[in-house]
Amino acid sequence: MKKGIGKAIVGEWSTKTIVTMAVGAALYGVLMMYGSIPIFSQTNLSTAMIVPVVVGGMYGALPCSLTLLIGNIIADLIGGNGMWFDWSIGNAVLGFFVGLLPVYGAYITEGIFKVKHAVIYAILCIIGNVIAFGLITPIFTYLFYGGELKVTFIMAGFATVGNIAVLLIVGIPVLFLLSKRYASRSNLREE
């Protein structure tokens, strides 16, 4: 079923969407703190990157973006190391790119996710990470905190590589499995 680009970006909104976003943000925050492997100073390879895959796949770009924004704020609160809104905004931008699935025809909840969608998803995850952490986060680090950009760029580089690894290696199979699950529930087949 084709949807307009605006509707695909804004996503599907209902009580279920709000609840999923709240649970996703809380889970994202907890996994950022406790479900990660440190790879560089304040930068981790995180299982939290599965949250945007599920939220973005089911509800679209804006719900995914807000989930990651709030989830990163929750991680900052749990961590007790201060609020890092530069990284929260970067995560929101990344969530937007991950959640663009319906824009290019990947309707996970309708059982539609093919190899071509996986390729587009992979490209957008790479572009989204580079923009979010190679451009947006350093800009806001400088604007908000007057931070040392060299350190931010190094941290962003490690975050980008780690995020891309999880989003692609784990995320693509998760999207295929979710799509298959929804297809079997609805008995729908794309022709």
Rank of each mutant, 00 (worst) to 15 (best):
L77M: 14
T141P: 00
F40G: 01
Y104A: 15
P138D: 02
I89T: 04
T152H: 00
F153Q: 03
V51H: 06
I123D: 12
G56Q: 12
G146Y: 09
G171M: 10
I50R: 08
G146Q: 12
A48M: 11
G82H: 07
L101I: 01
W84F: 11
V98Y: 06
V170S: 03
S46C: 14
V51Q: 03
F140A: 08
W87P: 02
P52H: 09
N81H: 13
V119Q: 07
F133H: 03
I164W: 09
L124K: 01
G90R: 05
G82L: 07
P38Q: 05
V98C: 10
Y145N: 14
H117K: 05
E148G: 01
V151F: 12
I127V: 15
I131H: 03
V53H: 14
L68A: 04
T43L: 04
A156G: 15
P138N: 02
L143D: 01
L143Q: 01
I39V: 15
I127F: 05
A118Y: 01
N129E: 10
A156V: 03
Y104I: 10
T160W: 09
G171D: 06
F133C: 02
L68K: 08
Y107F: 11
N44R: 08
K116P: 12
F158D: 00
L69C: 05
N44Y: 07
T137G: 01
L100T: 12
V54M: 12
A159M: 14
I123P: 13
A48S: 15
A165Q: 03
L94K: 08
F40P: 00
G90Y: 05
G80M: 01
Q42I: 00
G147H: 05
N91T: 06
I126G: 13
S41R: 11
E148R: 09
V103P: 07
G95K: 04
F153G: 04
K150G: 14
V161Y: 05
G60H: 11
A75F: 07
K150A: 15
V170H: 00
A118E: 02
S88I: 06
D76G: 03
S88Y: 06
K114F: 13
D86W: 08
D76R: 02
L135T: 08
G60Q: 06
G95D: 05
I164A: 12
A106M: 12
C64I: 02
A132M: 03
K150P: 08
L167S: 14
Y142A: 15
T137D: 07
C125S: 15
V115W: 09
I139F: 14
G60M: 07
I164L: 13
P102G: 13
L168G: 11
I39M: 02
L135V: 15
P38D: 11
N163R: 10
V53I: 15
L101F: 08
I50K: 08
A106W: 07
V51L: 07
T152P: 00
M155R: 13
A92T: 02
A159H: 11
P102Y: 13
P63K: 13
L149E: 02
Y107P: 01
I108D: 00
P102V: 13
G147R: 10
I74K: 08
V170R: 00
L135G: 06
T137A: 14
